[in-house]
């Protein structure tokens, strides 16, 4: 465990170095968030009755989404891991007395977390100063806030675990670039990054909510502003835990299968 902590620490410190990028990122995300809210406002004005959540809850959803973008972003993949796999350098990693899956898991988690840490607080601070209903509202209650933290951690775990599967799949494909682009856009769509899941028609939404993608950002962002009932929340948290366990198990299996295959074939 100790060595994985140190992988985590090294990557985390590295991520903190990109300060200019973080500042530029904050500005970027602030604009994206703002434009998104203006877009939802237009739909709200067109037909308020058809709006599935309050405008205020939508704004909070969008600001949280922008603030924690790096935790859940589907395009934030570790290029070095891809390069290692494609170039066959991963063989060297096999010589180290570590579990590749755990090492990569620690690494991607640290990378995402370090980037999110720099960006989230300033974005949230500025967003909470904006006038209602466009700004970031306080959490519905202390309990909701605690549940938000819990579901955010679970959702973060599901996100990292899912992309571990993608890395493992890279062993089996000729064009990791094509795979990466495709998977990113599919995940973004099903996770509610393009439009929040409540905006989908009910039938479609019910199916989407069962998928692992809904266990990523969808749950914490909706828990925060209490746009889920207690029953829905309990179910969502259960699903998150299930998907986290399932994805980690599948990832480990795929990873070790790929590595055995590689060792047998000699790279």
């Amino acid at each position: 465990m100790k060595k994985y902590c140190s992988f985590f620490r090294v990557r985390f410190a590295l991520g903190l170095q990109y300060r200019t990028a973080a500042l530029a990122g904050m500005v970027t995300q602030f604009f994206w968030g703002g434009m998104n809210i203006l877009m939802y406002r237009a739909f709200y004005e067109a037909d308020a009755a058809a709006f599935p959540m309050t405008l205020q809850a939508t704004s909070s959803y969008i600001w949280l989404q922008q603030a924690f973008l790096m935790l859940f972003a589907a395009w934030l993949l570790e290029n070095e891991i891809f390069d290692d796999i494609v170039s066959g350098n991963v063989a060297y990693e096999l010589c180290r007395p570590v579990n590749i899956y755990d090492m990569w898991f620690a690494r991607s988690a640290a990378n995402r977390l370090s980037r999110a840490v720099l960006r989230s607080f300033p974005i949230l601070a500025v967003a909470s100063l904006l006038p209602a209903p466009y700004g970031m509202a306080a959490p519905a209650s202390a309990a909701h806030f605690l549940l938000f933290l819990l579901t955010a951690v679970l959702g973060f775990g599901v996100t990292v675990a899912f992309f571990m599967l993608v890395y493992a799949l890279t062993f089996y494909t000729v064009s990791p670039n094509g795979l990466r682009i495709l998977i990113s856009s599919v995940v973004e769509f099903f996770a509610g990054a393009i439009i929040p899941l409540p905006f989908f028609p009910d039938g479609v939404r019910r199916v989407f909510e069962m998928l692992p993608f809904a266990s990523m950002q969808n749950v914490p962002l909706r828990v925060y502003s209490a746009s889920m009932t207690a029953q829905e929340m309990a179910r969502a948290i259960g699903l998150q835990a299930f998907w986290l366990a399932a994805l980690v198990a599948a990832g480990r299996m795929l990873c070790s299968h790929a590595l055995t295959k590689m060792t047998v074939q000699g790279g």
Partner: peptide, 25 residues
Amino acid sequence: LMITGQLLVSFSTFFGIHFMFMRFS
């Protein structure tokens, strides 16, 4: 693969619009 990827990627934006208009006229 890249061309197909490019084709499919922008469908997510399209579906974003599509599903919004299933709710709003």
